[in-house]
Computed example of a mutant assay.
Amino acid sequence: MDTSEAHDNVDVQGAEAEATQSSTLSGQTPSPRKPNWALLEEAVQMKTEGNAFYREKNLRSAIRRYHSALLILRGLDSEMMSCVKALGQVLLPLSPEQETLLRNTQVDVYNNLAACLLQKEGVNYARVKEYSLRVLQWQPHNVKALYRAGVATLELGDAQTAKEYFTQAFKEQPHDVNVKKYLQKAEERLNQELQKEKAMYRGMFCSGNGVHNQHESGD
């Protein structure tokens, strides 16, 4: 894996922590924090640029922009309050409109990151599932996240859970061709697993009967 490839798979939270540690060790005083609206605009701009790269099939650059957007959004998320206080900065509360924009942008970025990863060679299905599940925490009925979580889960070997994701996605969007196809694929995989299990038990039963008959017939 080259250095640019490694950058694509960077852990966003780890990158943020590393930047924080670097600033602390250097003895630098944190720079004044931008207003919430300015940070949100910056995050949306990063997402927009990422979308443009995605349409151009430039997945690497798209992923980088999406990661940049997430770094900004993490600093605005109320769940990061303790981290921000540790830096000696005050996190001003978001207005209801800003909170909505924050969540919607997070949802879009995580969904788009999952879409990017699914198109790369050597797909990291665990990461696709992770991003999709983050979306579902905020929007349990998000069809794109349900579908991608299902695809990743199926590829990771859990056909039953994958079927549950696809079934929910089908309820939300019954005419989606891809959802229908993968729901059928999950059901076929489950049927194959069931047939294998039945064959295994039949083999065990027949083997047991053979041993039992040998004992009955004597030496």
Score class of each variant (00 low, 15 high):
residue 1 M to V: 07
residue 4 S to H: 07
residue 4 S to Y: 11
residue 5 E to K: 04
residue 5 E to I: 03
residue 5 E to P: 00
residue 7 H to G: 09
residue 8 D to E: 13
residue 8 D to F: 12
residue 9 N to Q: 08
residue 10 V to L: 14
residue 11 D to I: 03
residue 14 G to L: 15
residue 17 A to E: 09
residue 22 S to P: 01
residue 23 S to A: 15
residue 23 S to Q: 12
residue 25 L to M: 07
residue 25 L to A: 13
residue 26 S to L: 14
residue 28 Q to N: 12
residue 28 Q to T: 07
residue 38 A to R: 10
residue 38 A to V: 13
residue 38 A to Y: 10
residue 39 L to E: 10
residue 42 E to C: 02
residue 43 A to H: 09
residue 44 V to Y: 00
residue 44 V to A: 13
residue 47 K to A: 15
residue 49 E to H: 06
residue 50 G to T: 00
residue 55 R to M: 12
residue 57 K to Q: 15
residue 63 I to M: 15
residue 64 R to I: 13
residue 65 R to W: 00
residue 68 S to W: 04
residue 72 I to R: 07
residue 73 L to D: 13
residue 74 R to L: 10
residue 76 L to G: 07
residue 76 L to M: 08
residue 84 V to S: 05
residue 87 L to N: 06
residue 89 Q to C: 11
residue 90 V to H: 10
residue 90 V to N: 12
residue 90 V to G: 08
residue 95 S to T: 14
residue 98 Q to K: 05
residue 99 E to L: 12
residue 100 T to F: 12
residue 102 L to F: 06
residue 102 L to W: 05
residue 105 T to P: 08
residue 108 D to L: 09
residue 109 V to R: 00
residue 111 N to P: 00
residue 115 A to V: 04
residue 116 C to L: 07
residue 118 L to P: 02
residue 121 E to D: 15
residue 124 N to W: 00
residue 124 N to F: 00
residue 127 R to M: 14
residue 132 S to V: 02
residue 133 L to T: 11
residue 134 R to L: 08
residue 135 V to D: 01
residue 137 Q to Y: 07
residue 141 H to R: 07
residue 143 V to N: 03
residue 143 V to C: 03
residue 145 A to L: 03
residue 148 R to N: 11
residue 148 R to L: 13
residue 149 A to G: 10
residue 150 G to L: 01
residue 150 G to T: 08
residue 154 L to E: 01
residue 166 F to S: 02
residue 169 A to F: 11
residue 169 A to T: 03
residue 170 F to T: 02
residue 171 K to D: 15
residue 171 K to I: 10
residue 172 E to Y: 07
residue 173 Q to N: 13
residue 173 Q to R: 12
residue 174 P to L: 00
residue 176 D to K: 02
residue 176 D to L: 07
residue 181 K to Q: 09
residue 185 K to E: 05
residue 185 K to I: 00
residue 186 A to L: 04
residue 187 E to W: 01
residue 188 E to Y: 06
residue 189 R to G: 00
residue 190 L to N: 03
residue 191 N to I: 04
residue 192 Q to S: 12
residue 192 Q to D: 13
residue 193 E to W: 05
residue 193 E to M: 09
residue 194 L to H: 04
residue 199 A to T: 06
residue 201 Y to H: 13
residue 207 S to G: 11
residue 208 G to S: 11
residue 214 Q to I: 04
residue 216 E to Q: 14
residue 216 E to S: 09
residue 218 G to Q: 03
residue 219 D to S: 09
